[in-house]
Simulated scan of single mutants.
Amino acid sequence: MANKTILKWAGSKVGIMEQLRPHLPKTKRLVEPFAGSCAVMMNTDYEQYLIADVNQDLINLYLIAQSLPLDFIANAEYYFQTFNQKHSYYNIRDKFNTTKKYMTPQGVAVNFLYLNRHCYNGLCRYSEKTGFNVPFGNYKNPYFPKKEIISFANKAQESEIICLEWQDTLSLVDFGDGVYCDPPYKGDGFTRYHAAGFSDADQEALAVALKDINDSQGNPVTVSNSLAAKELYLDLGFTVHEIEAPRKIAANGSRKSATEIIAVLAGVK
């Protein structure tokens, strides 16, 4: 059974770990430029991890969970016990968007966890004008991930966690590292996990950059994406596997399983 994660996350890999794990790089260190829910880190046993993401709120939460897990639990649990009403959610969301720059890093992490666990389907979506803009999820008893925070803190002691663009993260890939990328899916509709978004041009640039790293350094590479990205990766010489993945949310409202791809470039020994 897969380990759960601190955050609810649209597109989390928890549900497909048994299908994904055989295709992941066999290396000592795994580099992830798109941290997401950290489902892969929490369900694999690499000696080291480099976990990165462009989303500052996400990385800040992981850094706080890594360094101050007990304080984080105590402060976040108070929010969960006290503010489980619709008006409270929108008040906290407005405060988060307008006064975040004045909060402590731990305060930002507490608010972000609260919003994630109380918002609709664990979406992480931003507007350039208003900031985090996911509506209230209307849950009776949102789950508080105490066990997951402790598990993450233990696992993260052997991890480097940084806030970087994917291009900068790939520049840190060393000889012998493995790379796993789980970018916003091509054509999926939910690409604004950061205000800058992730375009088709970004999809192509990422795929080409991963091919270049494999060619120049021999690093094994694994990528998850939608079926819409299949031809892109095939054209670059990736081996592409199709899997059926459960979907908790989709752009068209369907929750049926969807075909996804796992694109792989073997490492050069």
Results as ranks from 00 to 15, higher is better:
77 E>W: 02
78 Y>C: 04
79 Y>A: 05
79 Y>M: 14
80 F>T: 01
80 F>A: 04
80 F>V: 07
80 F>I: 08
81 Q>W: 04
81 Q>C: 08
82 T>Q: 15
85 Q>K: 15
87 H>D: 14
87 H>S: 14
87 H>Y: 14
88 S>K: 04
88 S>G: 10
88 S>H: 14
89 Y>H: 07
89 Y>A: 06
89 Y>W: 09
90 Y>R: 06
90 Y>W: 08
91 N>G: 12
91 N>M: 05
92 I>P: 00
93 R>H: 10
93 R>L: 08
93 R>V: 05
94 D>Y: 07
94 D>A: 12
95 K>Y: 13
96 F>M: 15
98 T>I: 05
98 T>C: 10
98 T>S: 15
98 T>L: 11
98 T>A: 12
100 K>P: 00
100 K>C: 08
101 K>L: 01
101 K>H: 06
102 Y>N: 09
102 Y>S: 11
102 Y>L: 05
102 Y>K: 11
104 T>N: 05
105 P>F: 02
105 P>S: 10
105 P>A: 15
106 Q>T: 13
106 Q>V: 15
106 Q>D: 05
107 G>V: 12
108 V>T: 08
110 V>Q: 01
110 V>E: 03
111 N>I: 04
112 F>I: 07
112 F>T: 04
112 F>M: 06
112 F>S: 02
113 L>Q: 01
113 L>R: 02
113 L>V: 15
113 L>E: 02
114 Y>L: 11
115 L>V: 11
115 L>N: 01
117 R>H: 07
117 R>N: 09
118 H>R: 10
118 H>I: 04
119 C>S: 15
120 Y>A: 06
120 Y>M: 13
121 N>L: 14
122 G>H: 09
122 G>W: 01
122 G>P: 00
123 L>A: 09
123 L>E: 01
124 C>L: 15
125 R>P: 12
126 Y>H: 03
126 Y>C: 11
127 S>E: 13
128 E>T: 11
129 K>D: 09
130 T>F: 09
131 G>D: 07
131 G>N: 02
131 G>S: 07
132 F>M: 07
132 F>N: 00
133 N>H: 12
133 N>K: 09
134 V>D: 10
134 V>E: 00
135 P>A: 07
135 P>G: 05
136 F>A: 03
137 G>M: 03
137 G>V: 01
138 N>A: 12
140 K>W: 03
140 K>F: 07
140 K>R: 10
141 N>G: 00
145 P>K: 00
